[in-house]
Design a protein around this nucleic acid. Structure first.
Lengths: 200, 200
DNA sequence: GTCTATAGAAGGATAGAC
DNA sequence: GTCTATCCTTCTATAGAC
């Protein structure tokens, strides 16, 4: 069964917003890319571009967040899993000619000071990613506060490495960020005696 | 002596691009904000919006890069200086209601896949920041390669923390990033025996 | 160099036939 | 639910008087 018109609109919006940003993408362009009749966008999203934008942010954010369990379930050592996450991100960047980085970062920066509805949508996505990561770190024996700090740092360095890599066209920056982050995770785990670590 | 018309145009463009992004800012808005007659923009920047954008990126990048010597000259311990850099950035965010973060990151993401002229301008700015930071780390005894990796990581985690802080309206994320980065710098310095460190 | 007016294209959004 | 036509605004850019 093929995708519905609404799904195609959301997917086209996601691809264009990620690549060109929110302001840089027109509704007509989304309709052409979907493809879908122009009027159908307003049929499914009566709130217009903002409503579509919020939906795209939520859907893209949920999809990307699923990479966390995918990568961390596959590797018992969290420091290695952390490094693997960045290696995967770097490879995705290369395979997409530096387009496939964070699905919402460009929009997040564009709307942070200009569109409260969309800013809140991006904030909720970031919070969900931080929570998911912090949960992983907690399972490995880190206290809640420390786990959250590491999670914030990991999302931050990943996002920033995406900025550098896309601008400078060098995916190794993401891998370098991964090495530094993995070392930080390893160091945090060593802060506590081995006996106090929970086994997963 | 007051600012020239051209300077006012560049400054207005810098403020608006940082806040609203490149696509989200109109030439007329820049003229109104400067303030300057609309035609004057094209008098000083015959290449239009792209030429103005490239100039804004270069000027803003140079100005922000000057914070590196400012912060690192004031504190001999590089790990502490690193932390101080992030504390200063967090305070600037708070003082500006989360507008005054990286002057070029929003534009960098917007143009990375759509405007090669501006992408190159942002890449040159990032490269200059990385070089300046790596130089500081080298002065403290780190080998060139390691120094550059740390510099990339530091710019990355700062940029990403800006994204999170602006979206989530919480400047502490920048401070958390600073603590993690300062620890990474401290750990890197300890990798080598004390005797092999160069004194500045 | 300053400023106004306007061209020509593209933007978001709506109406209404089918 | 699909699709076209169109409204009105805004955009970048240019022309030309002063």
């Amino acid at each position: 069964m093929s995708a519905t018109t609404k799904q195609r609109i959301v997917e086209a919006g996601a691809a264009l917003f990620r690549r060109q940003g929110y302001s840089g993408t027109g509704m007509k362009q989304i309709a052409a890319e979907a493809p879908a009749p122009f009027g159908s966008i307003y049929h499914f999203f009566p709130g217009g571009k903002d409503e579509l934008g919020a939906e795209v942010i939520r859907i893209s954010g949920r999809a990307y967040g699923q990479l966390v369990p995918m990568v961390f379930d596959a590797e018992p050592d969290v420091a290695i899993a952390t490094r693997n996450f960045f290696i995967g991100a770097a490879n995705a960047l290369r395979a997409s000619e530096f387009e496939d980085a964070c699905p919402i970062a460009t929009v997040a920066l564009e709307v942070a000071s200009t569109n409260e509805l969309l800013r809140l949508a991006t904030a909720e996505v970031f919070e969900s990613w931080i929570k998911a990561l912090a949960e992983r770190f907690k399972r490995n024996g880190l206290p809640a506060r420390r786990a959250r700090e590491l999670a914030v740092a990991m999302i931050a360095i990943l996002e920033g490495a995406f900025v550098l890599s896309r601008a400078m066209r060098d995916a190794r920056h993401v891998e370098v960020a991964g090495e530094v982050m993995a070392a930080a995770v390893r160091a945090a785990l060593k802060e506590r005696p081995v006996g106090s670590r929970k086994v997963r």
